[in-house]
Write a protein that binds this DNA or RNA. Structure first.
Lengths: 117, 117
DNA sequence: AACATCTGTCGACGTGCATCGACTCATCGT
DNA sequence: ACGATGAGTCGATGCACGTCGACAGATGTT
């Protein structure tokens, strides 16, 4: 089967998106405005666009609160699939490498359609 | 520091390239012609092009022998950097590391919204 | 209610990349 | 030496994606 690393690698392939993930990994959970404040070289619209990709590909989680939307890493999401994929790819036939997998996923990416029509 | 995951993620972002890596992971070491035989939907030139990307980004190793060039995964290459990157990203702040089946996923968000493209 | 703030979406634009055919170079066989 | 085969490179082409400004919807404030 085609696992979800596809989505993750696609999301991870962009530099700005990795930067966003780094920020979220350090800060934990941030509103869009806060993320924009951390990311320079691109505007708010672009960050919003990237957040959409990260969200629809199952890498981050969105939480609404008032006027804000807070984003955080989805450590159980597709990024983990990418991690697992790389693990099996790199460690195939080699010594074991312990890799925990605390499972508790209930979040699933939303629709990926980009304005169909 | 800006590690080499950049290169790896860029290389991994393409579907054909991941397919090539899968083949190399299974078969071990293959000539270009053999790889082409395993990959369909694209021609030899394209595969060669992808192999170039994989090679220059430090994901695979090239070995010349006669008229052939044999490619194999570089398990110590930048793909490992990507792996390490994801590991620190996903496991940051976690200590509860238990061995579990990395198989899960009841809710699999596969490709959506593009099928009837 | 009127206004301000937060954020997503749409349409447009430019660029990078995947793809391919034709060509070139190196190596092997005879 | 000549032809055959394996494989990289070059130039052209088409498309997908990153980027942005303008606008829209929702929520908070006064």
């Amino acid at each position: 089967m085609e696992a979800n690393e596809n989505l993750a690698f696609d999301a991870l392939s962009d530099r700005i998106r990795r930067r966003i993930l780094n920020v979220l990994g350090e800060e934990g959970e941030l509103s869009v405005g806060e993320i924009v404040a951390h990311i320079d070289a691109v505007g708010r619209t672009t960050v919003s666009s990237h957040l959409r990709v990260l969200r629809t590909s199952g890498v981050v989680i969105e939480r609404k609160s008032g006027r804000n939307r807070y984003y955080s890493l989805d450590r159980e999401g597709t990024a983990r699939d990418a991690f697992t994929y790389l693990q099996s790819l790199l460690h195939a036939g080699l010594d074991a490498v312990e890799t925990s997998t605390p499972r508790a996923s209930d979040a699933e990416p939303e629709d990926r359609g980009r304005g169909a029509g």
